[in-house]
Design a binder for these strands. Structure first.
Lengths: 344, 344
DNA sequence: ACGATGGCTGTTAGCGGTAACATAGGCGAT
DNA sequence: ATCGCCTATGTTACCGCTAACAGCCATCGT
């Protein structure tokens, strides 16, 4: 607006302002503020002093455009409201901390279309890398990621084809493993309780692995119950009540996540049901919340922190020039039997 | 690197590529992609087709620099791992959704220094607005925010001086209100259990209000216990056990958040303590987790969703030219007595 | 027929930095 | 003194896009 030479006191400052205030060229100021190249101590002091008193904040937009370098890493996750993704974020942040890279979060609410648009939006800021939850994306999203020319890490899941790198666990195998443990403990009439969401591919894969093991033993799920939305703990209670009413003879409840599992556990204890004698329970995730429950729910930890760390390491690794990528890192969750499965 | 005229197939695309592929000027392409200005339908189609087949993703860095407009809103919060801030985020996202603005999250881990650096980092991207949790900041951070020339909204708390606008509740008053309710129910030997963190100013203010009411009635806290880190639910149990051992005659436990309150409640129920007859309990926040507990913990909701919404509305409101700002919106939490305070 | 009008497209000049190169001294070795 | 070389600083040319303005052409009223 103001093209007049009159100095607008509310105009935001530029390098030129600092340069004039300290009597050196803009380039020198730039060098001081980025700690790059040789600058004499006297000059450095003068510049820093000027920048400080003016309250100069550099414009990274201009800097990024000129240098073709952006210190941002896009992180695309389905949700922030269940404990799992925040913990992945923690792992990412920790690891990125001393690399100068900064995570930027986008949330998709489990919608593929939203995911596509979030990815598009993020790529338009030309980040140095992208971390995306899951392997399932729209074709357009996959194409954009593949073309972006930056490291891409798909996290949480490794059952499928990755665009570039991947870090996660096999949910399919996790489901099988839990089924094995449950069968080994002698349970036979097993019910599944989980989310309705058709786009929660990881829960789907766990269930698939789980059912495969059952059917190979000549069994099938005795009952199943789905939910969506609401307080997971409360939903867990309600679903459990529904299942136990409908199928009084079930002897095991397999939940797609720990939160509803915890609700189910509380319900069983309320009803005075013998856990794990009459009914066993298991969840998934290994959330620390469980530590405070009256009885420890059987679960499998999803290696969330570790996944975040490893993903960030891949992004931060300066694959100098030749972008290598294409790593797939499988982590192995451990079964935590807790107190809700009969001990062999 | 490649200054040669040879086309690098991995070079990222620019407007020029789309312009050449569709036979119109860059400017026209830009207009099509932004839906701005008049473009004939035929041209529009041709451009969109070209952009789609090439897989062009605009460079917002260049766009932002040229237009001096950035569709980002910085959101600075202490943590993602307790349910409260994600819910504020939800309110913000919802409201920003149809404004073209996009939230960018930064996490401070309750450290003022980290907060300062996160704010600096964010301002250097020249966002359209900033939403920052709390009113307590370093002098430098406050100065940067004040000088930024964009709307600033400080959220959660209104007990103090705002840089620009503020949306939140009075935690001081919330503490007083809870104390009134507890005293009214006849409890007299009251203990406080809360976080150690010196930078959780809101918990501090609640406690301050709480103690003021007690002391005005000639009472003082019968005991107090602090924690930091770890599973809040478990910590709640442990702290509660410690307090009940040390001070067997307390008749009320006031927790600084619902999560430890829930742990405390579970502990009391385990021990078969008469709640709320012998011992009453109350927390703070109104997290939906509580709905699934065996007994509903008394709490006060912190209006988190609403705070997020109102803050985003202030940012999104196109205060055309004349930046008005300076609004302070106080919300009023409601006391939810639940089942853990004796009913008068 | 003619300027006025309006729809559509192109041209020019930056936005605020940084890479790359150029330059001015100062100093020791020859 | 001459040269080379290093240190400290300045100059120039963009990065990829958009605001602002300048054309051009068909249509329209008179």
């Amino acid at each position: 607006m103001t093209k007049s030479p009159v100095i607008d006191p509310r105009r935001t400052l530029t390098l030129r302002d600092v340069s004039e205030a300290s009597g050196v060229s803009e380039m020198t100021v730039s060098r001081v503020l980025r700690n790059r190249g040789d600058v004499s101590d006297a000059t450095r002091e003068r510049v820093l002093e000027a920048a400080r008193t003016l309250g100069y904040v550099p414009n990274k937009i201009a800097g990024a455009l000129a240098s073709q370098r952006v210190n941002l890493v896009g992180v695309v996750i389905p949700s922030l409201s269940n404990m799992v993704f925040p913990e992945v974020m923690t792992g990412i942040s920790e690891t990125l901390e001393d690399t100068g890279l900064q995570p930027v979060v986008g949330v998709t609410h489990y919608s593929p279309e939203r995911e596509e648009s979030v990815i598009y939006e993020m790529l338009s800021w030309r980040p140095s890398g992208m971390i995306v939850a899951g392997l399932e994306h729209t074709d357009a999203a996959r194409a954009m990621l593949a073309q972006a020319g930056i490291p891409i890490v798909e996290v949480m899941d490794i059952d499928g084809a990755a665009v570039d790198s991947a870090v996660g666990i096999s949910h399919y195998r996790a489901g099988r493993q839990m089924a094995d443990a449950i069968l080994a403990a002698g349970y036979r009439r097993i019910a599944f309780l989980g989310t309705m969401m058709p786009n929660d591919h990881r829960a789907r894969k766990r269930l698939q692995g789980f059912e495969e093991v059952l059917s190979r033993t000549g069994l099938a799920l005795a009952d199943r119950e789905f939910y969506s939305g609401g307080s997971a703990l409360l939903k867990g209670r309600e679903m459990t009540a529904a299942v136990l009413n409908r199928s009084p003879d079930v002897d095991f409840l397999y939940y797609s996540n720990d939160m509803i599992g915890a609700g189910g556990l509380l319900h069983c204890l309320d009803r005075g049901i013998d856990v794990p004698g009459k009914v066993g329970l298991a969840g998934f995730n290994g959330v620390e919340l469980l530590d405070g429950l009256p009885r420890k729910l059987a679960t499998m930890d999803a290696c969330r922190l570790e996944i975040g760390r490893r993903a960030a390491e891949i992004i931060a690794a300066k694959h100098p020039d030749g972008i290598i990528g294409g790593e797939v890192i499988e982590l192995f969750p451990t079964l935590q039997p807790g107190d809700t499965i009969r001990r062999g």
